[in-house]
């Protein structure tokens, strides 16, 4: 049987592979390094608040300028504070201890019962096309999470609308993907109609494109990448099946823009607020096109 032969070939092909002996060390070192950076970042804001230093929020959110690192500060972060002459002087401080993990771990890595599914992770959906129900399916990878909606709410059914939210490391990957859509392999801006287009959704920006997501058949997956502030990006996808039901390209774009407009953060992250569009679609006009190539 082909399946058995495949197993044999795969076994032969991977027989030489062995996990590196220092794999655990590398993983733990890398994870701690990342966590330390995050802790320092929080500590900068905390320390600034404690000593009454006026640090513009934008500076802290931008992270870089507020943290000084160098040979003398190995393992210790430093706050930039103005001295009497007004110049920036590094002030070392000890980062606070890491938070204690919750004693009651969650056994699942999805969101469990989300009711109508409109609030998941750290976002809330304000608008969905008529007739859709939560699919009862979600996934939570920590810095990326997703859920979807379909016609019958069947967990095993095909999705109509799916929203991925990218944060942390996943955000970087998502941004790189959008950049790859924006520019061709020579770094030129892609203005070809078959590529995506820059859009504004209320006071936020987005990128509208039909992605090829690896499946056979269909004409691709219309997707809206919505910038939800400096720490978050949403990827709103309409399945090729649902696209057929919507009929026209205009209807597809209208629905994507309305979903994007209604999508908001629930953790108070700045730059992520918007209004839920009216169910009659009258608000879709708020989503206007912006010059491409940004």
């Amino acid at each position: 049987m082909l399946e058995d032969d495949l197993r044999q070939v795969m076994a032969d092909e991977t027989a030489h592979l062995r996990a590196a002996p220092d794999l655990v060390d590398r993983v733990i070192r890398s994870s701690r390094r990342r966590r330390t950076v995050r802790t320092r970042y929080v500590a900068v804001a905390a320390a600034a608040a404690v000593v009454g230093i006026t640090v513009p929020a934008g500076l802290i959110l931008a992270s870089g300028p507020a943290v000084v690192s160098g040979p003398a500060a190995e393992g210790v972060a430093a706050v930039v504070s103005p001295d009497s002459t007004g110049s920036a002087v590094p002030q070392p401080f000890e980062p606070p201890p890491l938070p204690t993990p919750s004693p009651t771990p969650s056994p699942t890595l999805d969101f469990g019962d989300l009711s109508d599914g409109k609030a998941f992770g750290r976002v809330k959906v304000g608008y969905l096309p008529d007739g859709l129900q939560w699919s009862h399916r979600s996934s939570d990878w920590g810095d990326a999470y997703t859920t979807s909606w379909n016609y019958d709410g069947d967990k095993n059914g095909f999705y109509c609308v799916q929203i991925f939210v990218h944060e942390g490391q996943a955000l970087q990957e998502a941004r790189e993907r959008v950049q790859s859509y924006r520019f061709d392999s020579k770094g030129r801006s892609s203005r070809d109609d078959s590529k995506g287009e820059e859009v504004t959704i209320g006071d936020r920006t987005g990128y509208l494109i039909t992605q090829w997501v690896g499946e056979d058949g269909g004409k691709g997956t219309p997707t809206m990448f919505l910038d939800m502030g400096p720490e978050r990006m949403a990827e709103i996808m309409l399945s090729p099946v649902f696209v057929k039901d919507l009929g026209t390209r205009e209807a597809v774009e209208r629905e994507l823009k309305k979903i994007a407009q209604g999508l908001t953060a629930t953790d108070g992250d700045p730059g992520t607020t918007s209004e839920a569009p009216a169910a009659d679609g009258g608000d879709a006009g708020k989503a206007t096109e912006a010059p491409a190539g940004g």
Binding site: V27, S31, R35, P101, S102, P105, S106, L109, W141, G142
Partner: peptide, 15 residues
């Protein structure tokens, strides 16, 4: 594998 294990390590208290 390293990427996946880093994510797992960060959530190890749950996983």
């Amino acid at each position: 594998l390293q990427t996946a294990l880093e994510r797992t390590y960060r959530k190890w208290d749950r996983v």
